[in-house]
Simulated scan of single mutants.
Amino acid sequence: MTTPSSSSSGAAPELDAVRARLWDAVSEGDEYAAAQVAFNALDDGLAAETVLLDTIAPVQQRIGAEWAANRITVAQEHAATAINDHVMAALALRIAGRRDLGGRSGRSGRTAERRLTIACVSGEWHALPARLLAEVLKLRGWQVDFLGAHVPTPHLIAHLHRTGADAVALSASLADRLPTVHTTINACRSAGVPVLAGGAALGHDGRYAPPLGAVWADDARAAADRLEEGLTRPDPAAVRQPVDDLAHLDDQEYTLITKATVHLVQHTLGALEDHVPAMKTYTERQRQYTAEDVAHIVNFLATTLYVDDDTLFTDFIRWTADILAARDVPPDCLFPALNIIGGQLKDFPRATAVLNRAHEALASHIDSMPPSPEGA
């Protein structure tokens, strides 16, 4: 599921203070201080769900924003995320201890017999948002099987058959995982299990969930509420295949580009050296980063063709331009990459149209960017 934001823009001062203290502890790498912040908030009367969703979750969002702005490193982002994950585990143990002392199981009569599986789709390594949902649902009395990051679809289906789950919640943060999300949703539905899907991959408004066969929720609180309302079990015999629901796949552009990804990336990298002279002096690490960036462009292009929505690719290109600018890399270096990829796909009309729109969107976005300090 997507990492939720605070439930109110005019947050209570005490929540602001708790978030500030948690951020200080997390950014300093002090796991014990971070856990103590959460414990103190619980002791001061904040509901456990509020601590999870209105303090830990916004701090996690801030971690991502700081990384995107190049104010913290990848290593710092990973360390901070790990601390938040440990804080959630410590908080869960503290709550479980209180329930044991109080002689209560913590399960409500309404949901005590409901069992849910939560998993990140194959290739998805950002597990903290899904973990948040798992902890919220445990608080609400569900029996939750949290499978964590990067769960291969066959393993997930075997688990569903073994446990008899009432529903499954799938998480994906990067939109280039959408074909995998679709495959996983179909497999779950074919097993007779309804699916709730969330995360940034599904779009900020969840636009990609219904066409792929899933119910959507925009954050952990909404997801928990929707699950408590109950999801309709699918008829396995009525589950449709991707080509049935996504008729545009008949043109084979998605399939052909996916199969040619390695060649597209290698050719683009080779040709880029003639258009970006600085590449000739790149270190091995810089070349690796450039290769990853080009691979992401090709993967997002293919996924855009899969869902037939140009905005997925143009939004990704704008985001990439912002990331490059934050790292002092001229975002206009994306133009030759788009042109070289386009030259290889000139016989693919849908791909060509997507690349042309992305080119226009990138030009407009760069024009609207604030000038660099050198050019100010």
Rank of each mutant, 00 (worst) to 15 (best):
H78M: 09
F300Y: 10
N356A: 14
Y289W: 14
A149K: 02
R99F: 06
R162F: 02
A82G: 13
V51G: 03
A119R: 08
G148K: 08
L312P: 00
G109T: 04
S368L: 13
R104A: 12
H159W: 07
T268Y: 09
L116I: 09
W142D: 10
A34W: 02
T50F: 06
T55H: 03
F39P: 05
S8K: 15
V239Y: 09
E66R: 08
I118H: 10
L22R: 04
K138G: 07
A47K: 12
G192A: 11
V329E: 12
L46N: 03
A197T: 03
A224L: 01
A200H: 12
E31S: 10
A361W: 05
L264T: 01
V121I: 07
H263I: 12
W23I: 05
A222R: 11
V195K: 04
A92Y: 10
W125M: 15
E253R: 03
T117C: 06
L178K: 08
S190Q: 14
R71K: 12
F146E: 07
L269E: 08
R107T: 13
E253K: 05
Y289K: 15
L334N: 03
G45W: 01
V136R: 02
A220L: 00
D145E: 15
R350S: 12
A191K: 02
A220Q: 05
A20N: 13
V329Q: 14
L133C: 06
H267E: 14
P373V: 00
V151R: 10
L196P: 02
I95E: 08
G164F: 04
P330S: 08
H86E: 13
L178A: 01
D54Q: 03
A326E: 05
R177T: 05
A167S: 04
E113V: 13
